[in-house]
Amino acid sequence: MDKALLEKIIENKNKKKSFCLVSQADVNETILVKNKDIDKHHFSEFIRKAINEDKLILEEINGKEWIFNPFNPPAKLIIVGAVHVAQSLSIIAENSDFEVIIIDPREAFAAQERFPNNKVICAWPEDAFKEINLDERTAVVTLTHEPNLDDIALKNSLNSKCFYIGALGSKKTHKKRIDRFVKDGFNIETLKRINGPIGLPINAQTPQEIAISIMAEIISSLRYQKESIEELRENWKNR
């Protein structure tokens, strides 16, 4: 490793591209393999595996140990509703290495000064979502309490591969939401993807505490296998 390599690492991280550092375990020589160059590399199989599983691989190949250290772009958190909870949530999420994007058409809420470190899009969710790729490493949270804002965002999310969808609101509000969505043709199994009421039940009271409960739920969705997450939620509820 040297200064030039560190500069290359940071440059590629800033570009939000996947790449992998490859080195022989006991040799001071590390190369950076970009995602687009993987196939040209003779260890492409291991590089691809490391990137796909987002996990460093130490592998013995022909009697020598090799290290494949992958770097992937951060997970994304889309927050609809630039409310008080969003201010706390954006800070915690950023600190947990998420890239945060905040959407709210209401100018008073979507003031950039309220979110100094994050991208704020002052637009209706249907327009804002056009410029966002809701992929498998994206979480969407709706916090506006306004069905005409939250519902559009939730429907977009349900039609995407995003790994987490959460909606603020009481059990009663959530039931009304589910009824509305069923009327609009969504099936009940699909609607189970929405976490509502949002957040792990830690009896959060303040906006800051609610933000922690939401972030904890997002992390549980990211880190648990899909099968165990249902079980986890049941255990939490029945505690």
């Binding site: 200064k3 560190l6 940071i10 991280k13 130490l58």
Partner: peptide, 21 residues
């Protein structure tokens, strides 16, 4: 990594430890 680069630029010698297994 960002800190290591800053330190190098300021003239320090630097080491990076990585968990490999």
């Amino acid at each position: 990594i960002e800190n290591a680069l800053e330190w190098l630029k300021k003239g320090h010698n630097v080491a990076i430890a990585t968990v490999v297994k």
